[in-house]
Design a binder for these strands. Structure first.
Lengths: 337, 337
DNA sequence: AATTCTTGCTTCATCGATTGAGCAATTGCG
DNA sequence: CGCAATTGCTCAATCGATGAAGCAAGAATT
């Protein structure tokens, strides 16, 4: 049960009081034209320090002025280059608008600094709520929002300080792995461990999927090959590079692949077509993510489609009621193929 | 040479003056709680009428108050379900941020009413610039923006009242058509016209691509089959439906297809795999758009990738300088395959 | 006829940041 | 020493929308 406490935002007057100076001096210092207005750097430093201590954020719209709620809802999203985030954003916008909220979305390209900067910018626009999607450091964002009295939520990747809505990565990956293992056995005869490609070892989703991957192997009665767990990042180039390295080390490539996202799959497919490694005998693949064209590839690819409508329903349930029943909601993904 | 004139926005005081009443009455009427504040419907109607005449837009942030420039730049985009618009949005955001602008993006799902509503909302947030991407009625948006003294720009689909940056649809489609025609001749022997699927006959891009399609056929010395021009809309279902209808009418399907977007291609591919129509003998296809997985499909697909970086460079050149050298900039797309 | 209630407005203070005007204290100059 | 120039601030008005408080005129009630 998480409740959002409406704390009062720090103002230039508060800061002026704390610094024993005037609001205009604070203003001049904080918006950077203190030199032009001939404020001493002593005072400037003092004000800057106090502002930082207080977690001050510039109130961009003195207007939303007299409206206690801005009805602005911010979302941070890593990329627009895949169907998963695309549908999250599109549906998020529609659901926000349905509720009379104004969605502001920022694409942070998996850049941690940009995530923080974007969060601060949105707060200075007085957003009432913040949804951090696939954030690299969700807790940092939660912290910044909490300091401004703004509720926040994590989507896709969980945090520990705000309610989180994510896919059931463990169960999804376990089932996907099992399916690919079985298909592999049928196709090629004999039990053989899969290759895991893509994602970051440090992120929750990848580690949960790896856990499901391992448990599926154990249930299937075949040991995981530790050299074949390539959590090399999501980008196509990284996935292709990891495979290239593996090949350069003279490792045998297995007949079955677990690919951690369509983005990584893009790299895997490119590598395959460039090196012609698998030749005509395509590997059996499982992809933790969905794309309509991947479904049509002439390859054997099982897909797990994350249930975006169900995830966003949970997100807006929390926002609508202002409370989260559970700190972490895990939504079962959908199997395709 | 288009120059943006900074007109003063109409306020509730202007309206109060015009209506011979007070600003608070105007405010009450315009934000809908005039019944609660017991304003006569006579006055309410008068004020409403005058507000409409004056093209009044609510100033959502009285704050951006005292700053003549909000540094907010709005973008309207139809969908997030393909790489083209995805990369437009991602790059637009990055380029805006580079310039110290705050991008606000709204996805209007090709809904004309939502486009207008989104434009109005962005104006009430005091945006300085508006980019209408793939808008169904760009001129309407230009008009609304002009009334508020805000500069606007069209991207992807052109308008007649604001500078437009689009792909060279005619040249791209002509070349793509020629390539597919030739490939078809090589593959199947004999000259044969192609089938055109997807897009809306009413939009500029589709009609220009159709023009290129026709001219390519003429240059190739083969007549276009008028029953095989299916500008049925972009959505996958519409493309699939158009093919189903064609088949139901007992028409022969040609060996070559011109597909007007990856979105339509999704429907074409689905229809092909569901009906198994072409069987093993896949048609030769050309797609006016690009997707990494389409490139990997086991099919013969030529693609035309629209040059997003070049298009956005033009867009920001206009925004940076405040002037457009030409009313219409056509960017040559890139051939792949 | 006196009082209360209702109707239909207007007045005014307010939200938080910005900036022109103003002023005391110090320094410079003849 | 006296006056001007400079330095380093503070004061206070302002942007546009909102809504509580207030007020005059008429209707209803006693």
């Amino acid at each position: 049960m998480t409740r959002i406490k409406p704390t009062k935002r720090t103002t230039i007057y508060d800061l002026a009081h704390l610094a024993g100076t005037s609001a205009s001096a604070v203003s001049a210092v904080l918006n950077g034209n203190w030199k032009k207005r001939r404020i001493s750097s002593q005072l400037a430093e003092k004000i800057t320090r106090i502002a930082e201590e207080q977690g001050y954020a510039l109130n961009m719209q003195a207007s939303l002025l007299r409206r206690e709620k801005s009805k602005i809802i911010g979302m941070i999203v890593p990329k627009y280059d895949n169907r998963y985030f695309g549908s999250i954003v599109e549906m998020f916008e529609a659901m926000a608008r349905e509720r009379g909220l104004f969605p502001i979305i920022t694409c942070t390209r998996r850049d941690p600094d940009l995530e923080i900067e974007a969060a601060r910018t949105m707060l200075s626009y007085q957003c009432d709520w913040m949804v951090a999607t696939g954030a690299t450091d969700p807790d940092r964002i939660t912290e910044i929002c909490a300091a401004a009295g703004v509720g926040s939520l994590n989507l896709d990747l969980p945090g520990s300080r705000a309610p989180s809505v994510i896919s059931d990565n463990y169960a999804g990956a376990r089932e996907l792995t099992l399916r690919v293992l079985k298909k592999c056995e049928t196709r090629f005869g004999g039990k053989e461990p899969l290759l895991f490609v893509g994602g970051r070892g440090t992120d929750h989703n990848t580690s949960e999927r790896l856990r499901g991957f391992r448990d599926a192997h154990e249930a299937f009665g075949v040991p995981v090959d530790e050299h074949h767990l390539l959590a090399c990042g999501y980008a196509p180039d990284k996935a292709a590079g990891a495979l290239r390295d593996l090949q350069a080390r003279g490792e045998d490539l297995p007949h079955g692949l677990f690919v951690n996202s369509t983005i990584s799959l893009e790299g895997v497919m490119r590598w395959m077509s460039e090196t012609g490694h698998y030749g005509d005998r395509q590997p059996v693949m499982g992809c933790f993510d969905w794309d309509p064209f991947v479904a049509l590839l002439g390859h054997d690819i099982e897909m797990v489609r994350q249930d975006v409508p169900a995830m966003l329903k949970e997100v807006f349930d929390i926002i609508d009621t202002g409370t989260a029943k559970l700190p972490l909601v895990e939504i079962p993904p959908i199997f395709i193929g």
